[in-house]
């Protein structure tokens, strides 16, 4: 499978057993977990959902619903 570097958009190298992700172009070596976090933050659509929600929270004064 091909996965793009969130920084330079070139293909990254997935190290065997998915422990590390390497980008030769950016000379970056991420731990898998770290890479996914970067990927999530770069997912604009999903981040917009959250940003919109947080904005609405301020407007409506709803608070996060606690599990108690």
């Amino acid at each position: 499978m091909k996965v793009k570097c969130p920084e330079c958009k070139k293909d990254v190298i997935i190290v065997k057993n998915y422990t590390h992700i390497l980008c030769e172009s950016c000379k970056l070596d991420w731990e898998f977990k770290e890479f996914i976090m970067v990927l999530m933050r770069s997912d604009k659509t999903a981040m917009d959902v959250l940003a919109d929600y947080e904005k609405k929270l301020q407007e409506t004064s709803e608070s996060y619903v606690s599990w108690g």
Partner: peptide, 14 residues
């Protein structure tokens, strides 16, 4: 990942 975020939002917000 988008699905995870959307569903998580429904968890923290009624």
């Amino acid at each position: 990942l988008s699905m995870v975020k959307k569903e998580w939002l429904s968890s923290i917000s009624k």
